[in-house]
């Protein structure tokens, strides 16, 4: 009589083990490395030996106005972008949630921004925003409005970037909400109609409450990604003009790979990490509450 082999008895460990080791090695270890670096004064270019400086990096970075601005900018960029994406995305989904000619094509079009290379998207929008030859100013002037400087001006750069993010990611919310709407059963809608609800009341009291969990999950997923927005900002403005569009991610990148101040860069990354973690906890909480 054969005994079960070693592999068979320990399948639940052996199967996921390579993936676990990979992630531990390439993600968990580096994160702790970052954490450790934040207590040192290490500078990759100075050639000075690394020394332990305690919490000095934290005090330094936290006292810097540039850091405060970056935190504030990261949060306002994220909030503005995700707010418009959620509202527009849900609205479009509700409009498209019926049978019509060309629905398949419309859904394909919605997919395109999601898979477009963000760096290239950023560059295309740079041409669009160009103050002298861009379509944006031409559109404003043909409407009789004053022209703007868009990403070249410190006051308008952030809203201009928000527009790009909204263009690229609103369809994500739309597609998720559409999928959520498609998964709802017909009966509550029919019941509401039989009960004499107007289309508006059905929308308000039946459709939106039923699809709300899906919207919330989509919004949190977007929040996490929006906090980490890098490609379009880096490609379009590099954080400028000045520091006017520098978010935590961009600032961390510059401290790491332009100034090579690894210790301080680590502090910035930990701050970004913290915000992402908060949102992630939100998603897990939402998940467990929807399971109960």
């Amino acid at each position: 009589m054969r005994q079960p082999s070693f592999v068979e008895r320990h399948l639940r460990v052996i199967f996921p083990l390579p993936a676990i080791l990979f992630i531990a090695l390439l993600m968990i270890f580096p994160i702790f490395y970052t954490l450790a670096l934040s207590f040192t004064n290490w500078n990759l270019t100075s050639g000075m030996p690394m020394s332990f400086v305690g919490l000095r990096n934290f005090f330094r970075v936290f006292a810097e106005p540039r850091f405060h601005d970056a935190v504030w900018r990261t949060l306002s960029f994220t909030f503005l972008a995700v707010f418009f994406e959620a509202v527009l995305g849900t609205a479009i989904a509700l409009i498209l949630n019926r049978a019509f000619i060309g629905k398949g094509l419309a859904k394909l079009l919605l997919l395109l921004p999601l898979v477009a290379t963000p760096v290239a998207v950023g560059i295309v929008f740079n041409l669009f925003y160009d103050p002298t030859i861009g379509l944006a100013n031409w559109a404003l002037s043909s409407l009789g409005l004053p022209q703007g400087l868009w990403v070249s001006d410190a006051t308008s750069v952030l809203p201009s970037l928000v527009i790009v993010d909204v263009w690229q990611w609103t369809p994500m919310i739309t597609l998720i909400v559409l999928a959520g709407l498609a998964g709802l059963s017909e009966e509550p809608f029919e019941a509401a109609r039989v009960d004499g609800a107007t289309p508006w009341q059905v929308l308000r009291h039946v459709t939106i409450p039923m699809v709300m969990p899906v919207i919330l999950t989509a919004v949190i997923l977007r929040l996490i990604d929006a906090l980490k927005t890098f490609d379009i900002i880096f490609a379009m403005t590099g954080g400028g003009p000045g520091y006017a569009s520098e978010t935590l991610n961009i600032m961390g990148f510059k401290y790491s790979f332009e100034y090579f101040r690894m210790g301080q860069a680590s502090v910035i990354l930990i701050a970004l990490f913290f915000f992402v973690l908060l949102c992630s906890l939100g998603i897990m909480k939402l998940r467990s509450s929807s399971e109960n």
Partner: peptide
């Protein structure tokens, strides 16, 4: 645990990788 890799900002492991 594996989802964490999707959620965490890439730059927080990029810097150590670089080193």
């Amino acid at each position: 645990f594996i989802l964490l890799a999707r959620l965490m900002p890439g730059i927080s492991f990029l810097m150590p990788w670089y080193i």
